[in-house]
């Protein structure tokens, strides 16, 4: 019983997260400006991190937790670096 509940709820949640990744990707493609794409990348990272946590629940190991932590750290660092690049790297003059 509990296995069926878990299977279906986790699957629906994963579909929702996949949907959010698709939505973020569509914004990344449509742009229109660089800052929109970076914002979408940040949202994409968060959705991917949560997706990994759900994978961990599904498989029943906490190994995925470490991967989620690494993705969280990487997402933060890359977004900050890109935002900093927008500030000074590509200025119209």
């Amino acid at each position: 019983m509990s296995e069926t509940i878990l299977f279906w709820t986790i699957m629906v949640s994963q579909f929702l997260l996949a949907g959010s990744m698709i939505a973020a990707t569509s914004r990344m493609i449509r742009g229109p400006r660089a800052q929109d794409r970076i914002l979408a990348l940040d949202a994409f990272y968060v959705a991917a991190m949560l997706m990994l946590v759900l994978f961990g629940i599904r498989v029943g190991t906490s190994v995925y937790f470490e991967a989620a932590l690494v993705i969280g750290v990487l997402g933060f660092v890359s977004t900050v670096a890109l935002a900093k690049f927008l500030m000074r790297g590509e200025v119209i003059e």
Binding site: T9, I10, V12, S13, L16, S20, A24, A47, L50
Partner: peptide
């Protein structure tokens, strides 16, 4: 667990929408 996972991913989905 299922309820929390559903609420969390639904909120994330609405945010990305």
């Amino acid at each position: 667990v299922g309820l929390f996972a559903l609420i969390g991913s639904l909120l994330t989905f609405i945010g990305c929408m």
